[in-house]
Computed example of a mutant assay.
Amino acid sequence: MGFFEVFWHGEAIGDGSDLDEALTAYLAVKPEEGSWAAACADALAQPCVRRYASFEAFLDNADELETIPVTAAMIEAALLPII
Rank of each mutant, 00 (worst) to 15 (best):
57 A>I: 01
16 G>V: 03
7 F>K: 10
34 G>V: 04
60 D>H: 13
28 A>M: 12
32 E>K: 15
78 A>H: 03
35 S>D: 11
67 T>W: 06
11 E>C: 09
43 A>L: 13
29 V>K: 05
20 D>C: 11
71 T>K: 11
64 E>V: 10
30 K>E: 13
81 P>T: 03
22 A>C: 03
36 W>I: 05
16 G>W: 05
74 M>K: 05
35 S>K: 08
39 A>W: 02
11 E>G: 04
6 V>P: 04
36 W>M: 07
77 A>P: 00
27 L>S: 14
17 S>V: 09
52 Y>I: 00
26 Y>P: 07
44 L>T: 09
81 P>E: 00
72 A>K: 03
47 P>V: 10
22 A>L: 01
7 F>E: 11
4 F>Y: 15
61 N>S: 15
74 M>N: 07
76 E>A: 10
21 E>V: 08
39 A>H: 03
68 I>K: 02
5 E>M: 06
43 A>Q: 11
29 V>N: 07
57 A>V: 03
42 D>R: 12
53 A>F: 14
80 L>A: 14
74 M>I: 04
50 R>C: 04
10 G>E: 02
12 A>C: 11
79 L>I: 04
46 Q>K: 11
77 A>K: 05
62 A>I: 04
60 D>A: 15
79 L>W: 00
42 D>Y: 08
21 E>P: 02
20 D>T: 15
16 G>D: 06
47 P>N: 10
34 G>P: 08
10 G>N: 01
42 D>C: 09
19 L>Q: 11
26 Y>A: 04
9 H>V: 09
57 A>C: 02
16 G>K: 05
53 A>Q: 14
40 C>F: 06
70 V>I: 11
36 W>V: 06
24 T>F: 08
64 E>K: 12
52 Y>M: 00
38 A>V: 10
30 K>M: 10
66 E>M: 12
83 I>A: 08
45 A>Y: 12
63 D>N: 14
58 F>L: 10
49 V>T: 06
22 A>F: 02
79 L>E: 01
2 G>D: 10
42 D>T: 09
27 L>V: 12
79 L>A: 03
67 T>P: 09
66 E>F: 08
20 D>S: 15
44 L>C: 06
27 L>Y: 14
11 E>K: 12
23 L>K: 03
32 E>M: 15
51 R>V: 04
15 D>N: 11
60 D>N: 15
6 V>C: 05
39 A>D: 04
60 D>R: 12
6 V>D: 02
60 D>I: 09
52 Y>R: 04
59 L>S: 12
11 E>N: 11
1 M>V: 08
79 L>H: 01
63 D>G: 13
32 E>R: 14
10 G>A: 02
63 D>R: 13
31 P>R: 00
83 I>H: 07
18 D>Q: 06
35 S>V: 07
71 T>F: 07
6 V>E: 02
54 S>K: 07
